[in-house]
Amino acid sequence: MFTIQHESGGTVKLVGRLDTNQAPQAIQALGGMNGAVTIDLSGLDYISSAGLGVFIVTHNRLRAAGGSLQLVNPSNHIRHIFHLARLEQVLTIK
């Protein structure tokens, strides 16, 4: 299961599993967002390299248009994946 919820204040919350099957849907859904985007990862249970690709693509698209991407509330498992991929230093993760 994977869903994208639009919260108050413009924050987007990802819920469920961001795996190779869900990544295209996520890229497409996030592709409609612009400006300073905050994504709440507190509901994300799982991520693989395909999921990391979603954030790389989204970050690069937003930056190219003058926007930004901030990721908040990842679980320890998710944060560890970002760390191993050395994305912790280049993506804004709180």
Partner: peptide, 21 residues
């Protein structure tokens, strides 16, 4: 290469890096 700027990063190969890790 995990040290390149993020604008040059791709998901390809990252999975294998995770597996080895």
């Amino acid at each position: 290469d995990l040290e390149v700027p993020i604008t040059e990063r791709r998901a390809g190969g990252m999975g294998l890096h995770l597996v080895r890790s």
